[in-house]
Amino acid sequence: MTPDSQPEGDLSLSFQIQDKRIANPYQLQAELGLTEWGEVAVFRDFAARRMDLGTEIGLLRKEPYLLSIGFINWSPHLDEDPQPFIEAGYWGEHHRVCVGAIHAGYKNESILGYAMISMRGGGYRSIGKGVLKTHRRSGSPATSRAISNSIRPCTSVIVRTTI
């Protein structure tokens, strides 16, 4: 749950660990960018065999500044309501921070998060048009760095506190 959304046509996979009072303690999240400003997400907890839904809409996309709204943890089959949120973020090249608020059940919570692009490569597998191959052919160090950053994994930690 960060204010950045996947670019149109991009699919990302996340592994999440979180307090069980928020949602599934261990779950996988698949995010698919539908447009330049919106994505849908599916959360899957294999232990509990439950699946939640989420979505995000980018209201402001002037990087490094982002503002998004959406909802997460919606389980229509378990009759659990979606948790709407609003988030603003500063999305730097390597270091990223976000603040926001989320309505979960009967209470409101603040959101404070930090995300970092991995300094090491790996974790990426191109099934599409071969970004890695393009990267290797590029002779520009600056371009290589830009592409390398875009394909590196991102680690984020978010703290939700009851308001």
Binding site: M1, T2, Q6, P7, G9, D10, L11, S12, L13, S14, F15, Q16, I17, Q18, D19, R21, I22, Q29, A30, E31, G33, E109, G113, G123, Y124, R125, S126, I127, G128, K129, V131, T134, R137, S138, S140, T143, A146, I147, S150, I151, R152, P153, C154, T155, S156, V157, I158, V159, R160, T161, T162
Partner: peptide, 30 residues
């Protein structure tokens, strides 16, 4: 009460056209 969410994300599929260098093919190279 505070709760922590830890997330590790990587891209499975996609092609970011905005950062792909212009000269990605032999076209125009003489």
């Amino acid at each position: 009460m505070g709760y922590i969410v830890f997330t590790y994300t990587f891209r499975l599929w996609g092609d970011r056209k905005d950062i792909v260098p212009v000269a990605t093919s032999a076209t125009g190279v003489k």
